[in-house]
Design a binder for these strands. Structure first.
Ligand SMILES: [Mn+2]
Ligand SMILES: [Mn+2]
Ligand SMILES: [Zn+2]
Ligand SMILES: [Zn+2]
Lengths: 137, 137
DNA sequence: AATATTATCGCGATCATGTCGCAATAATGA
DNA sequence: TCATTATTGCGACATGATCGCGATAATATT
């Protein structure tokens, strides 16, 4: 593991150890991650502000997408099945109130907007209990 | 206008000028409102913390519902078509990036969760441009 | 390889939204 | 009118996220 694949190449972006670490973590994560989760992984070697800057930079680059959780925190997930121009983020995210796991729900949803309305950002969030943590199980 | 209808009556709730003002504003608003919007309406006569306390109190009473916007702020809307026990909030909310209006989208949505998952909170949010503000119009 | 350029980093300060503790105030009931 | 106590105002606090700036280091140029 710890492959060093990356793609700044364009714009005046530079490839740094920190960016590689964060991108690697995002790729390996099966869930969307927040700054504090990344901080645990990376330790105090990487600054808090830097983590935010890198994550937002990735979003600008179109290789990561950002979700506002219903806990008021931002979560970031590596884009899959997205091209740089066309993203597919119209799915819900689920947060387990017990174990804290964040996951993408499979089905893309299509919300019909009133006439003349134009959608820019989609943010679908459901919290509850996952199968493992569900009290009834 | 400025009708003085209210409904504390039950519990140890008291009817105050501030509560009436806020409830009146919520009813008259065609959109969901945040603390800072209410603050503009009410001026510095009412304290910031009080506005939050009253709004959250209304939520506890079940006469107002609370929405986390995709800008990270809470918005509050007077309940319509809700009973005290059974609420109908599984609809998307739309925020116009130009004029800032928040509105409820009409259709209730039903998201299918993976087997064993249990939903507790639903939050659907779309931001973009409303018909009035849409650049193409 | 040595140097220049400047994107990025670390650090602290700062902002923003929302909450809390507590003494003062005022709405209710007796 | 008086007693009770929910509510208010005010400041402090908590947290997530951003910003300014000098130091560092990735890239380009020589
Ligand atoms: Mn994407
Ligand atoms: Mn409701
Ligand atoms: Zn769980
Ligand atoms: Zn608009």
């Amino acid at each position: 593991m710890i492959a060093i694949i990356f793609l700044p190449l364009r714009m005046n972006k530079r490839n740094t150890k920190t960016k590689q670490l964060i991108l690697e973590t995002l790729k390996n994560a099966e869930t969307a991650v927040s700054q504090d989760i990344l901080q645990e992984e990376l330790g105090d070697a990487v600054d808090r502000a830097t983590i935010y800057r890198v994550l937002n930079s990735f979003c600008d680059d179109g290789i990561v997408h950002k979700i506002l959780g219903d806990d008021g925190k931002y979560y970031f997930a590596f884009c899959v099945n997205c091209t740089e121009k066309k993203h597919h983020h119209n799915h819900f995210h689920f947060r387990c109130l017990e174990c804290g796991k964040i996951e993408c729900l499979p089905n893309e949803v299509d919300i019909k907007l009133p006439k003349g309305y134009r959608s820019v950002n989609f943010n679908g969030f459901i919290s509850g209990y996952c199968a493992a943590c569900s009290p009834g199980a």
